[in-house]
Simulated scan of single mutants.
Amino acid sequence: MAEIKIKKKQPIWPWLLLLAGILAGLYYFFVYDENDAIVDKKELVTEDTTVMPTVADEKVAEYNQFIADNSEMDLDHEFSNNALLKLIAATEAVANSVNVDINADLDTARADADYITKDPMDGNHANKIKSAGEIIVQALTKVQTQKFENLSTELSDVKSSVNKIQNETLTLEQKAAVKDFFKRAGELLTNMNQQ
């Protein structure tokens, strides 16, 4: 008679252990290691706390630095012209940073600022400085009422200082009033920019 050979079955448990090991390795590689990467990314984000200066930061700082460094008012009115132009730029930058449209208001102020350097002997420079200042105050009022209700006192100080500039009086005879307006406007812009 023919002999039937029976093979003994190989145990399946070593294959199950191997499969479990492979699955554990894949789990560790894809899930556990990915969580470590997420933690590392969070640490990188929280470690970098450097704040990049905005356009408003730069323009306000530039204006304040200019009026602090260049306090001499001469017959050529370069100081007043540059201070007004830098004040307009800083006002625009702060308004833009809080999405308040004031551009139309400031075009006339720029024209007034440019006018004061055309003829040094013209007696209307104070009128133009005051006119430009009043326009800037209107723009600042729009920004303050829409976005910075807590700065009404500071805005009142700026309004008061521009009102002290007298028409028909030579600018060089009222340097203190003009400089006070520039100073108070800078303080208001700084406060707006820091909020």
Rank of each mutant, 00 (worst) to 15 (best):
T169E: 00
I136H: 00
Y32I: 14
G133C: 07
F148T: 08
K8L: 14
P11S: 13
I12T: 06
M73D: 05
N64K: 06
N124P: 10
V94P: 03
I135K: 02
A109Q: 02
E78H: 11
V98M: 06
F148P: 08
S97T: 06
F181S: 01
K159C: 02
E62F: 12
A104T: 12
D101V: 06
E168P: 03
I88H: 00
I6C: 04
Y115S: 07
V158H: 05
M73R: 01
E3R: 15
N167T: 03
P53A: 08
L140R: 06
G123F: 15
D112A: 01
M52N: 10
T145G: 09
A56C: 01
V143P: 02
A61T: 14
T141E: 00
A20V: 08
V100H: 02
E154I: 05
Y27M: 04
T50L: 13
N124Q: 15
T91F: 00
N70G: 04
E149M: 14
T190K: 08
L87E: 07
I38P: 03
N167H: 07
D101C: 05
T49A: 14
N103M: 11
T54S: 12
M73C: 01
S161E: 04
Q174S: 03
S156R: 07
E92R: 12
I102V: 12
N191M: 11
N103F: 03
T145A: 13
R110Y: 01
I12R: 10
D112W: 02
H77I: 11
D36T: 13
L19R: 05
L172S: 08
